[in-house]
């Protein structure tokens, strides 16, 4: 099972002839992901690492029947690429691109959401289901197969926590990077709900950071709807208000979106929050150990 990507994934890579696109398409393919097509307007007919390239997603769909699209298109054209994928009937779109204007994403989100499409990202490292499929830029060698679902707004911080878990012998069902932008497709809540339904996932680690109120919403959801244990981590306790901390979405606006408020909300709903990545891994190992 796992969530979002697995052995049933048939991937089309939009922006496959770019530097990043070609590099990661080849990596994903080498991992075992079924990469069936690439799209770059004007470059149809060629191939990248044996992957056929088409001019449009519609053609790629007609010829190779992908069910998932990965977007590596530059920021100013990325919204267009997401619409194109959705228009061609793709059910799952994973957008890696960083720097997409927030208003573009506002419109994309409001278009995509009622159509039942799963959008992950943008500004995210992608989704990895160890042993099944890797769609994105997550270094798969850090992770191992297991029963812990991992969902995070950050890339390297996720790798850090995955690495610490691996050292304690704990593996993952799926790792989902939801992205660091103010508007992302799948929220913590969407991904938590999927993990709750996924029979392969028994525990969940949620990695949040300053900005917005998605962690607070997730906190109430966890208490009300989830039977599986969730361990959380929040980054940015020392972040000053009004400053963007690397991720466009990581900003404390006035007094809203602080790490302290998120931690308190999670704890108030019975979710344990580790104070640093090492402690998070230890807490997870403790819970996993206690249940096995």
């Amino acid at each position: 099972m796992a969530i979002i990507v697995d052995s049933e994934t048939r991937l089309v890579v939009q922006g496959i002839t770019g530097r990043e696109g070609s590099f990661h398409a080849a990596r994903n393919k080498a991992y075992g992901t079924n990469v069936v097509a690439g799209v770059t307007p004007g470059k149809g007919g060629g191939d990248v690492d044996g992957i056929p390239v088409f001019d449009s997603v519609r053609e790629a769909v007609a010829e190779t029947s992908p069910n998932t699209a990965m977007v590596f298109v530059p920021a100013r054209f990325a919204a267009d690429a997401i619409y194109e994928a959705v228009d061609a009937g793709i059910e799952t779109v994973i957008c890696i691109t960083e720097g997409i204007p927030a208003h573009d994403m506002l419109r994309v989100y409001n278009y995509v959401y009622p159509r039942g499409v799963t959008l992950v990202g943008p500004n995210c490292p992608g989704v990895l289901s160890p042993g099944k499929a890797n769609v994105g830029i997550i270094p798969a060698e850090i992770f191992r197969e297991g029963n812990v679902g991992l969902v995070s707004r950050s890339g390297t911080l996720t790798y850090q926590i995955g690495h610490e878990l691996a050292q304690l012998g704990v593996g993952q069902s799926t790792i989902v990077g939801i992205g660091g932008d103010p508007v992302v497709g799948s929220s913590f809540l969407d991904v938590l709900a999927r993990f709750e339904r996924d029979p392969e996932t028994e525990y969940v680690v949620m990695v949040g950071e300053i900005g917005g109120a998605e962690e607070e919403k997730a906190a109430s959801f966890i208490e009300a709807e989830m039977t599986k244990p969730v361990i959380a981590y929040i980054a940015g306790f020392t972040a000053p208000p009004g400053k963007t901390m690397g991720h466009a979405g990581a900003i404390i606006s006035g007094t809203a979106g602080t790490a302290q408020a998120k931690k308190e909300a999670l704890e108030a709903h019975g979710v344990r929050v580790g104070t640093n990545p090492t402690e998070v891994a230890r807490l997870v190992a403790e819970v996993v150990g206690a249940r096995t």
């Binding site: 995070s152 950050s154 890339g155 911080l157 790798y159 940015g236 690397g246």
Partner: peptide, 9 residues
């Protein structure tokens, strides 16, 4: 990585 740096602080 932004998250890792925030965590480091």
């Amino acid at each position: 990585g932004a998250g890792l740096v925030m965590s480091t602080l």
